[in-house]
Amino acid sequence: MIEEYKLLFDALDELKERAKKGWVVIVEGMKDVESLRNLGVEGDIIIFSGFAATADVVGRRNSIILTDYDSKGMDIERGLVRALQSYGVIPDTEIKRKIFCSIKKDISKVEELFSFVSKITNSK
């Protein structure tokens, strides 16, 4: 069971490692922050508050866009990529793809990640 989610766990490890090294993680809401904290993600997690406002907070720091894997989340991602590029920064969107690649049939929201990971790790 766990083996089929190797990509998910590798992506979560990469996320934790980068966050620890100072990368900023951008999410949509407080429940997303709680889910990531419960998964062990440390460092700066910023809640999206508009394209320009969020880009101003992130500035030139390395960032990871981790919005939901739905149409709203994709719209936010596209707008944020443009806003952050105006600072000369290319945000990472690949970790999000890796996380949701193997689980999009089960969940599409960041806030559901912790309970999903708990469920699959406790069922082994």
Rank of each mutant, 00 (worst) to 15 (best):
D10I: 15
D10W: 08
D10Y: 14
D10Q: 14
L12T: 07
D13M: 11
E17R: 13
R18Y: 00
A19Q: 12
A19L: 10
A19I: 04
K20L: 11
K21A: 14
K21N: 10
G22C: 05
G22P: 09
W23V: 03
V25H: 06
V25A: 08
I26S: 05
I26D: 02
G29Q: 12
G29A: 15
G29C: 14
K31Q: 15
K31S: 15
V33L: 15
V33R: 14
V33Q: 12
R37Y: 05
N38Q: 14
G40V: 02
E42K: 07
G43S: 09
G43I: 00
G43E: 09
D44Y: 06
I45Q: 03
I46C: 11
I47D: 14
I47F: 11
F48Q: 00
F48I: 05
S49I: 11
S49D: 10
S49W: 10
G50Y: 13
F51L: 13
F51T: 06
A52W: 10
A53M: 06
A53I: 07
T54K: 03
T54F: 14
T54Q: 07
T54S: 09
T54A: 11
A55Y: 02
D56V: 09
V58N: 06
G59P: 01
G59Q: 01
R60C: 11
R60M: 13
R61N: 04
R61V: 03
R61T: 02
N62C: 10
N62D: 14
